[in-house]
């Protein structure tokens, strides 16, 4: 956001955006509730829920119990907890189960609820039967895409209803899940960490291609969506995009990946890469949430 000059501070109530009150819904108007102030909790909630589910998803393939437990905990305790913190009336959270027929949020709550119970059963019983695994896999993917799915159904925000939003969210969840998984393998000295690197190499590229496709697709979706992308690439959010998504989320992880290209993996570097893609992914989510704008009314 631009710094407000002295006269502006006196004359105009802060809108929380660069718009003056008289520009509201006359220029493309950024959404604020789901990113500014307490809205930042929602970003974190979506992030934790999804990376937790991502870790669960990957761990499922390897029947890696520590990963499952950690994934389950991150998704539910961190993700769910932060979710509840965001709410205006947290004690009424149970009411969110009331409208699954129309509300994506409500459906998400059901899925999280089912995942919580089923995951708990799986972890406790160590049941990795194919049926159970398929169910848990699907649930994990649904949870990974929960946040972006909730955003995606909002037709009023063109940047979110873009077609690449769901693929991007799934890839991002899986990508981070797999990095956490690899890191856990690496620190526990599990040799599988080495052979897993190939997935990291592939997913890093796929993830970034998805980001680019999101940008390309959204840019061409509508006039307002184009403004959102311009804000990312040229406007106030450019620093987060180039610094966060491109440099921290892709270039630096790419350097680390290239460094380990000859198969010489190293827990320290994997940790560093994980930290970077955490930051990069949060930046990616932040700018997608922050850049969404409503089409002017007149």
């Amino acid at each position: 956001m631009k710094k407000r000059n002295e006269l502006e501070k006196i004359m105009f109530h802060p809108t929380g955006t660069d718009l003056k009150p008289y520009e509201w819904m006359i220029s493309a108007t950024p959404q604020q509730e789901w990113i500014d102030k307490k809205g930042i909790f929602l970003l974190l909630a979506f992030f934790f829920t999804e990376i937790g589910a991502g870790l669960y998803f990957i761990s499922l393939f390897y029947q890696y119990r520590t990963g499952l437990i950690l994934g389950w905990l991150i998704s539910l305790i961190l993700g769910g907890g932060v979710h509840v913190l965001y709410l205006g009336n947290p004690f009424r959270a149970w009411r969110m189960l009331m409208k699954p027929q129309t509300s994506e949020l409500s459906r998400g709550m059901w899925i999280i609820g089912i995942f919580a119970v089923a995951g708990f059963v799986q972890i406790v019983t160590s049941n990795f039967g194919p049926v159970f695994n398929v169910i848990m896999g699907i649930l994990s993917l649904l949870i990974i895409s929960h946040g972006f799915m909730t955003m995606n159904v909002i037709r009023a925000l063109a940047a979110w209803s873009s077609t690449m939003v769901i693929p991007l969210s799934i890839i991002s969840g899986v990508w981070i899940g797999c990095q956490m998984f690899q890191f856990m393998l690496a620190v526990s000295g599990n040799q599988m960490a080495q052979s897993f690197e190939i997935w990291s190499q592939i997913l890093l590229i796929v993830y970034f291609v998805c980001v680019l496709l999101y940008i390309w697709g959204t840019y061409h979706a509508s006039e307002t969506a184009e403004k959102s992308i311009s804000l990312m690439l040229k406007g106030d959010l450019a620093k987060y995009f180039y610094g966060g998504v491109v440099l921290i989320g892709f270039m630096l992880p790419l350097l680390i990946t290239l460094k380990m290209w000859d198969g010489d993996i190293n827990a320290g570097l994997i940790f560093l890469r994980l930290a970077l893609i955490f930051a990069g992914d949060i930046a990616m989510r932040y700018i997608i949430m922050k850049s969404a704008m409503y089409q002017p009314l007149i």
Binding site: M11, F12, H13, K20, P21, Y22, E23, W24, I26
Partner: peptide
Amino acid sequence: SQMSPYTF
């Protein structure tokens, strides 16, 4: 007045 573009 703040919501009116020309007032202030």
